[in-house]
């Protein structure tokens, strides 16, 4: 892939989107039989699946916390998920992503309800297309609800990039690779509103003012995604009800 000359032409991005538009999203809940909760998400060309196991007994014993549940998060990319085959196994990037994602969920899961046990969140990126970590958090959030894990609220994640000096929502591959800045967010949404930030990273170069604009853009995108998450979850129940209506 080579660096495009321009990222924004006549106000539109390379894939035809406006700066504040999300890529198409598809969400399916309860896709895995063995997991306690699961979710499949497509965001742009990202295809990720999240599974939640737990709360379950924590093994080995020494990882147990006598006062609360231990949360584990594993972000993993399948070897075939990217253009150049990726060697299986965690690399440094995956480890960092797993860490900050885990911490985002630790901030909202009601840990004291399940001492001495563990909640495992596994997310596999089957196809990666910029923003896979945000797609994974969105899938994991739904999978946790599907597993019945008590939480303060739901997490919704989206990233903002800067290209040609313009802030764009939910960056695509070229914007992510060649842009001037990349900023992934995850928000806690409660009472139908964005309440606080559970995940925040940035690399690139942005002024203070630009960060503020990026934050507002991200909040707008996150609310749209949140509504899709809700819809997907509710869909399971409405269908069953309709069969017997």
């Amino acid at each position: 892939m080579s660096r495009p000359d321009k990222f924004i032409i006549n106000g539109k991005r390379l894939d035809g989107r406006l700066p504040d538009q999300l890529r198409p999203i598809k969400i399916e809940v309860g896709v895995l039989r063995r997991a306690d909760g699961s979710c499949y998400i497509e965001m742009g060309k990202n295809k990720v699946v999240a599974a939640v196991y737990g709360p379950r007994e924590a093994f080995p014993r020494h990882i147990q916390d006598p006062s609360k549940v231990v949360v584990r998060y594993r972000y993993n990319m399948a070897p075939f998920s990217v253009e150049e085959r990726k060697r299986p196994g965690p690399d440094r990037r995956s480890i960092e992503i797993s860490k900050v994602s885990k911490e985002a969920f630790e901030a909202i899961i009601m840990k004291e309800l399940f001492p001495r046990s563990v909640v495992d969140i596994f997310v596999e990126v089957l196809q990666a297309d910029a923003g896979s970590r945000t797609a994974c958090i969105n899938a994991a959030s739904v999978a946790l609800v599907d597993a019945g894990i008590p939480m303060k609220g739901m997490l919704t994640s989206v990233a903002v990039a800067k290209v040609d000096g313009v802030l764009v929502l939910d960056p695509m591959k070229e914007e992510d690779n060649f842009g001037e800045a990349d900023m992934p967010f995850a928000f806690l949404i409660r009472g139908g509103k964005i309440e606080s930030i559970a995940l925040l990273q940035m690399d690139g170069r942005m002024t203070r003012a630009e960060i503020k604009v990026a934050l507002n853009l991200a909040k707008k995108g996150a609310m749209e995604i949140y509504n899709l998450q809700r819809e997907a979850i509710m869909k399971q129940f409405v269908e069953e009800g309709e069969e017997n209506a």
Partner: peptide
């Protein structure tokens, strides 16, 4: 950086950050 631009940010640890606090910290 030298020009007061922000070149990296990392939230670390299990907590929720308010927009207000983020502003102050920046």
């Amino acid at each position: 950086d030298r020009n007061d631009s922000i070149v990296a940010m990392q939230k670390s640890g299990d907590y929720l950050l308010s927009e207000n606090l983020l502003d102050q910290i920046i």
